[in-house]
Design a protein around this nucleic acid. Structure first.
Lengths: 224, 224
DNA sequence: CTCTGGCCTTGATCTGGGTCAACTTGGCGG
DNA sequence: CCGCCAAGTTGACCCAGATCAAGGCCAGAG
């Protein structure tokens, strides 16, 4: 459970972590320590002091909330290039775990925010990150509140395809359980739905973690 | 449908719209025009240019997304003191309508953001607003993804009671339909659930828009 | 006063997705 | 190569909440 292979080294990243709309402005200087996390390893837990901000270099992370009886809801997946662990101030509102083996940069909050060379640009980049997350959350809310199982799965595949950008094939970094916990379904329903979509010729399950989107137009029609 | 009673006047508001955690810093100077909106009137529509930011003075606003077949999901209610219409840049990602008769301040985005006397404080206040919304959205996602009907209604009542702060009684500004569209349920289920909660002695329906929380502790136990 | 139209409640029935259980598949260590 | 175990699939059945339908309860108009 605890830090197994936490090989660490200093890492300098000055990538743009701004949204696609940015024309190069408002980038967040992201300097920190590169760590690796094994599949299933915790990055941080809900309620801990939010002293660090993270950025995925390789792999994928799930950010989730848990009810006292164990029910889990994944709020978001952080994919390569994504920042996570951004908080209002105090504590993390979610827990974060590696979905697959990961390389992640951990930067002190204060370094990224206060000690920045250009505080206005840093704050603007923060706003951009928060608003991007917020818009994705809203779509997630729409999906969970008003879409049926098939629509949820289709929306998920299309979104992942968009974010991973691997042509017409989605290489899922997560298990069926993770998909289910993101989509508010059960593993059985996710599995069945994928089988149905394949039977309809909309997708092809090359293997259970590799899905080809055969008919993107048809899929999009499936969920407006 | 269009602007019926859009009595307008200049309005100077320098309220703190920062979160509760703020010790007085990072306030957003919010200067704009005070407008009134009739119940049901649209404030802005999804896809329109997001040139204005809004702040509720009186009444309540629903921010929602709609699917092409008419299914509606309310993402958030904006209550007195809340800012809404904050966007990444381009267009509004949701539509906004008055749930009840409202008084709302509309401020130009540029006035609030760029032309601010203290751009760093403004940007920080923006981050605070976005993060607050984001955290509420995450809770909403948890509710929609993993809670049953009774838990949803209870969580909703507790949250509203917290935000409105009217002692132990919640004066609902919205209809059953709005509640249902926020909670991912139907009006019938919301109505039945309230009746059940009353039968259990957890709440009292003084009238259909006025609900007394008789046993806050019991309610909280209902949904962890 | 009655009429009308929202809004809300209540009951009967239906169904999408959950639950339970068996089985298959695939990756990995020995 | 086999055996093992986690992950995924498939089937049978069940139930929470949706749907369909009938009234009830105001508030405002006439």
């Amino acid at each position: 459970m605890s830090a197994l292979n936490s090989r660490v080294s200093v890492y300098q990243s000055v990538d743009s972590v701004a949204g696609k709309a940015a024309g190069g402005h408002d980038t967040l200087e992201f300097t920190g320590i590169l760590k690796t996390y094994a599949r299933g390893q915790e990055v941080f837990g809900q309620g801990e002091r939010a002293d660090y901000v993270y950025k995925v270099v390789r792999g994928a992370v799930r950010c989730f909330k848990t009810l006292s009886d164990g029910r889990r809801q994944i709020c978001d997946f952080a994919l390569p290039g994504d920042v996570f662990g951004l908080e209002l101030g105090g504590d993390y509102g979610v827990s974060a775990e590696a979905v697959a083996d990961c390389a992640i940069v951990a930067a002190r909050r204060s370094t990224v925010l206060e000690n920045s060379a250009d505080p206005v640009a840093a704050a603007k980049a923060m706003v951009r990150l928060a608003m991007t997350d917020l818009e994705r959350s809203r779509d997630h809310i729409l999906t969970l509140g008003r879409r049926g199982a098939a629509e949820r799965v289709v929306v998920f595949l299309l979104e992942l395809n968009d974010r991973l950008d691997g042509g017409d094939t989605v290489e899922l970094p997560m298990s069926r359980q993770d998909m289910a916990d993101y989509l508010g379904l059960t593993i059985e329903t996710v599995s069945r739905t994928l089988t149905h979509l394949e039977a309809e010729g909309l997708i092809a399950l090359k293997c259970c973690r590799s899905i080809k989107l055969c008919d993107p137009r048809g899929l999009r029609r499936h969920c407006d």
